[in-house]
Design a protein around this nucleic acid. Structure first.
Lengths: 218, 218, 218, 218
DNA sequence: TCTTAAACGAGACGGTACGTCTAGTCTTCTA
DNA sequence: TAGAAGACTAGACGTACCGTCTCGTTTAAGA
């Protein structure tokens, strides 16, 4: 029932191959319906919490038939997934000419702002929750969200190692987690606020370590 | 309706206070039913996933009336919460005589083992998921799970600062997150395995930092 | 589990046998509880309808334990049955010295007044309803309510036949029904009101027939 | 919520009026489901008594979802009501050319046979019982069952009065009750059997009265 | 006075049905 | 062919009442 192995968010209506494919037969997919569904899902989440986001409610709010929703998204989590990506045009790129510390801080801070200041935060939390019981969601989150961001940071770290700026024995995956995991952790548990300077603190503490700076030499 | 602000797991049948409290009236609560429910919830979770843990299924498996389940737990998440705590007799204590690094590693490793090797891992993941839409669960998790563990580590760190072993400018909360959050993160997203040496790596990298050991002196 | 074949309303606490039986051991039955239950049942019926008369509600309203109710009455219908009889001290006797027509009218009118003007009406309707699915109730109603009243009227009719006042070919049972059934019918269906002169009309029409008073003589 | 004042049994799918009404949108109602429910209800009643007719059991036996049953009938009594009418195609018409006595006997006997010999008897008894606590049922029974039958008989009686065959002072409503109420009475209480000749007896006794035929004239 | 025994209150328990809700699917007509 | 409308099956939800049970407490009569 699930085609193409997982969560296809961007569906290609026609194959863009070389040969003339001919116009797609029949009524084309309604762009209005697609957008309305994604917006309805986000709206419902924001002002009713996760439990309010039912397929029924999405269809009703988007003024779309339930069958139409099911036709294009296999579950409500998939709707939220696409809704999340469609409104999160956040980039993983980093400005040129920054120091390692500045670059990493920029990436972590971008995530923290997204989580704290936009509806994307709630969406993301609920998606991670949904991932606990839906492997499909978990895979999609990993592929399309976690992995790209981790790779960006991992790339910076590896380059720094090669430049001799970081220690060669570095466990890159663990280091990346030590920068980003706290943000997710605070999103999900809420035990501490996501302060403005959190990103800088995380980067500083990780790069520099927690030991005292340097015993004054005589 | 709920006493003592949220999820009471240990219910005191009679206050052992000074004054005579009087015997509890009526048929006493069935300990058998209580235990069966908690076990049924854990069993269902393990061999059917989160979606299999319905109140209906819990009652059926525990051979207990649905009304009895609802009488003592307001939602399935509360059942799982108590189930989790009742089978997680994990301690936050740390052996005496260990170095700071060893102590922290011990704590992180204990969490990683719990998450990776016991049913507590799945329970914990689902509880964090449930916390996204249930403030009651979130509060209970924070109070009874997150906070005690964080305080244990934070205590160690603060003591080390006072001993001069760690830098005074330390952001303790952030540091604790940098040690533990990666474990939760990997539990929830599964992007990387919870390797045996992860705890040691996390502690080493945070305490020592990522910079090369000794800048070559001319 | 049901002793003495059906609905025993008056329970004999001690056997009145020849020998002195001695007082019954233990705490005697609480007359207060008994009365409170019967009253609670009637009250609930009156101001909440049949559906409001649950064993739970009866016990609560009577401030009596549910177990106590079940100890003395096997079902709510039995409670209502006893409640009905205990507050219906209506007699089947007829004053001396009345004509047949007057006697019958008196009996029918007494029933009509009971049904129309007292809470006994609602009770009786609900008991007949309950009798449709509970043979126990049906038997009790027949034995303790229907039969005595029918026998009183049937006796009057049979005596009149013997006096030559009524036709010998009379079907007494059918005649009794033709006098009383309309009252029950109107109670249960409510298609026509229970007018004051109904009893007189029923008796007159049945005794005298519907044909014109005097066939025109040539 | 209920249209057309109560229990609508025959639902008009489309108004056949002058204006074009347009086809009904959506999937049409399943006739199979409707019939199965009605039959299941009757079957359950017959071989399990009134208490066996639960919505749950009806749905299960009809192999229909509970939601579907609730969608079309607000209570089990409504199901039984429609079930009763759908299988009771009994008429109120009377053959031409019969005497008044024969006509009335025919009507009463038809009712008695229905009550005694078909499943309609039990259905009817339970509907009258249900009417005691559900005004909706009471109204439906009155409108669709009691009233039409009473009017048929009342018409015959009134015509006879006009022909001079019956006394002008006749209370028609009471007379009709004296013919039919005994049948209902015996159905509900069961104190006497519904004998074959009951109808004839009731009619004869009412029309002719109970007094001896005619005192022999010298 | 003390023992014994039944009735009583409170209330937890295993069940069953309730009536509602959402998930998904299916069927029909319309655009 | 997509979409809208909406009926359908399946099954969990949380509640209410059922009738039973297990306590501790009362209230008498008998020892």
């Amino acid at each position: 029932m699930r085609e193409e192995g997982g969560v296809g968010v961007e569906r290609v209506t026609r194959a863009p191959g070389a040969g003339t494919v001919g116009a797609p037969r029949g009524r084309p997919r309604s762009e209005r319906a697609r957008a309305a569904v994604l917006e309805a899902a986000a709206d419902l989440l924001v002002d009713g919490g996760m439990d309010a986001v039912t397929m029924e409610a999405i269809a009703a709010r988007a003024k779309v038939s339930k069958a139409t929703v099911y036709k294009w998204w296999p579950s409500r989590a998939h709707v939220m997934l696409e809704s999340f990506f469609s409104r999160t045009r956040e980039t993983t790129e980093v400005p040129e000419g920054l120091s390692l510390e500045e670059s990493l801080t920029s990436l972590v801070a971008a995530l923290a702002r997204l989580v704290r200041d936009t509806t994307g935060g709630a969406l993301l939390g609920d998606l991670i929750a949904a991932a606990q019981s839906d492997p499909d969601i978990r895979a999609a989150l990993d592929e399309r969200w976690v992995r790209p961001r981790r790779q960006a940071s991992a790339g910076l770290l590896r380059a720094a190692v090669e430049r001799g700026e970081l220690t060669p024995g570095l466990d890159v995956a663990a280091a990346v987690d030590q920068l980003f995991a706290p943000v997710y952790y605070r999103l999900l548990l809420g035990h501490e606020p996501l302060a403005d300077d959190l990103a800088a603190t995380l980067v500083r503490q990780l790069l520099g370590g927690l030991r005292p700076p340097r015993p004054p030499r005589s």
